[in-house]
Simulated scan of single mutants.
Amino acid sequence: MSNAYEQDFFSWTREQAAAVREGNLGRMDREHLAGEIEEMGRSEQRALAARMAVIVAHLLKLEVQTERTSTNEKSWRNSVATQRRQIERLLGKNPGLRNPAILAEALESAWDDGRDWAIRETGLDPEQFPSEPIYDLSGILGEYR
């Protein structure tokens, strides 16, 4: 089984799906199958952190970049609203992501990525951006004021 997994992942997935549907435990590559199922969950967690990073980046730009156009501001606010809506959908489909430890981990990752993104996009001195999070979970997921 391990050879098929490493040499032809696509065919391996089809074989494993068939084995699961048939209930044929003997044909299942349990170790790799379990790893792939866990990876699917981690993928949802990464999606959460990525959406949160977009919010962080745009909130920071709104906070720090005082010289901006109304078009930029409108675009950033719309992006924040869209990402919040998408996060709510993601959490609705994956209630396990609401676990406080998972949310905290996603927020930590999102802060670093979002801050870096805002620095790159604005071209401003990194010192102008707080190195420690200034938004908590409700600030990221709640309405921007």
Rank of each mutant, 00 (worst) to 15 (best):
V54L: 11
R51I: 04
R77Q: 15
Q45P: 00
F129G: 03
S131R: 12
E121G: 03
A110E: 03
S75M: 11
S109I: 14
L107P: 00
E132S: 12
I119K: 09
A106M: 07
T66W: 08
L124H: 08
G92W: 10
A106F: 09
V56Q: 00
A106Y: 02
P100D: 06
L97K: 03
A53T: 02
G35R: 02
D112L: 09
S109D: 14
L107D: 02
E67S: 08
L91A: 04
F129N: 04
L107K: 14
I102M: 11
A53M: 04
L107T: 13
E127A: 15
W117C: 04
R115L: 06
V56M: 01
E63R: 13
D112I: 11
L97V: 05
E108D: 12
R77M: 11
D116R: 14
K93I: 03
K61P: 00
S70V: 15
E36Y: 03
D125K: 09
R46W: 10
Q45S: 05
L33Y: 02
V64Y: 01
T71L: 15
D113W: 05
Q128Y: 10
S79L: 08
Q83D: 01
G96V: 10
I37Y: 11
R68N: 02
E39Y: 04
E67Y: 08
R115E: 02
A50T: 14
L62E: 08
A49T: 08
T82S: 15
Q83V: 06
A50P: 00
L62M: 13
L33E: 00
L62K: 05
P100H: 06
R68S: 14
L90T: 09
P95R: 08
L33S: 01
R84V: 10
R84F: 10
Q128V: 09
T82E: 14
S75R: 13
S43K: 12
P100M: 05
V54R: 05
A50L: 10
A104H: 11
I37T: 11
G123N: 06
E63W: 08
I119V: 15
R46H: 12
T82R: 12
R77G: 06
G114Y: 01
S75E: 11
P100R: 02
R84K: 07
A104S: 13
G41P: 00
E132C: 00
D112K: 12
E44D: 14
E73L: 03
L33W: 01
E108Q: 11
I87Q: 00
A104K: 15
V54C: 01
L62S: 05
G92Q: 08
V64M: 03
W117D: 12
E105I: 05
K61G: 00
L107G: 02
T82L: 13
H32K: 06
S75H: 07
M52Y: 02
P100S: 07
S131A: 09
E63M: 09
N94H: 13
A101H: 08
A34R: 03
E39L: 06
G114F: 01
T66V: 12
N99S: 11
